[in-house]
């Protein structure tokens, strides 16, 4: 049962693509793309003259090139645009060196900052991305340029994986943890171990002592929030503060983090008023940033178009 629940979690966000209904790529001068191959999910974003044209969000398979193709094809489904029409494509993310249609790579740190700047607006100063297997904290300026950053992919604590291990242990689906962590009488003491493996032992102890499941979920969410806060404080957190990635969907962690920091996370709406009807998917920030970098590089003459058709 727990196994099934865990597998199901991966599919909580729908795979799929979106093409801008008002867009016409044929009228555009430059067509750029960004492909973000992460450890868990992959996204492709296509921009026409630096404006969002299409995107997709898919699950990463065992093979990075296949995953890149899968998400690129999904983004272009419903459009007559083909890869041959793209002027320049940049790969990013954990699997960035294995993106076959990309001409170069840029780190996801730079792309996330750039993408978040576009999505949430130039007031964004801190971006925290909580991935499946890493977490990144970025400070950026009003142009989306990285001012400071930190990336932690060594330790599972504070990553999506850390939450999955916990969900598996207590046999509760991941998406129930956030809401249930608030169905408590009083906020319990947080789990004291940072290390996921030691935290597991601690949780088993609490279960055996008869502590209520919801209280344990609260204790775990609080610990994760605290850990993220420590990381952020290392770098310095400023408003507008944006949190992306899988953990962003866990209110049990996000609300506790906001409380600890005394800072609210930014509302998830497009900064540009004309974008407000478009779907807002926090996971596309990296791919979008890559597509925008491609556009900027072309327009500055830093790279040449490779468009075939």
């Amino acid at each position: 049962m727990a196994e099934e629940a865990k597998k199901e979690e991966y599919w909580r966000w729908p795979e799929g693509g979106w093409v801008n209904p008002d867009g016409d790529w044929k009228k555009g001068k430059t067509i750029t793309a960004g492909v973000d191959v992460g450890s868990v999910s992959s996204q492709a974003v296509v921009a026409v003259d630096g404006e969002l044209y299409a995107f997709s969000n898919t699950r990463t398979g065992s093979d990075s090139p296949d995953s890149a193709w899968k998400c690129m094809n999904m983004a272009l489904e419903g459009s007559d645009l083909t890869v041959d029409n793209i002027d320049y494509c940049i790969g990013t993310g954990y699997g960035r060196v294995n993106v076959p249609m990309a001409q170069r790579t840029i780190t996801e740190i730079a792309c996330h900052a750039r993408g978040a700047n576009f999505m949430y607006g130039p007031e964004v100063r801190t971006v925290m991305d909580m991935g499946g297997q890493d977490c990144k904290a970025i400070n950026c300026d009003d142009r989306g340029k990285v001012l400071n950053f930190m990336m932690n992919d060594k330790c599972a604590a504070g990553t999506g994986r850390g939450m999955e291990v916990f969900a598996d242990l207590i046999r509760v689906p991941v998406w129930e943890i956030g809401p249930r962590s608030f169905q408590i009488e009083a906020e319990p003491e947080m789990i004291s171990s940072t290390c996921v493996v030691f935290a597991k032992t601690e949780v088993v102890g609490l279960l055996e002592e008869g502590v209520l499941e919801n209280d344990i979920m609260a204790a775990y969410c609080a610990a994760m929030a605290h850990r993220i806060m420590e990381l952020l404080n290392r770098l310095g957190v400023q408003e507008k503060f944006v949190i992306t990635g899988g953990i962003a969907k866990n209110e049990g962690v996000v609300k506790r983090l906001e409380e600890e920091l005394g800072i609210k996370t930014a509302e998830r709406v497009w900064y540009k008023p004309e974008y407000r009807s478009y779907p807002f998917d926090t996971q596309i920030a990296g791919g979008l940033g890559a597509a925008l970098f491609a556009e900027a590089m072309l327009s500055r003459g830093k790279v040449k178009s490779v468009r075939k058709a």
Partner: peptide, 16 residues
């Protein structure tokens, strides 16, 4: 830009 290379784990902050 201040680039923090390294990690934080249960035992401390380990960054260059």
């Amino acid at each position: 830009m201040k680039a923090f290379f390294g990690f934080k784990d249960g035992s401390g902050d380990w960054f260059v």
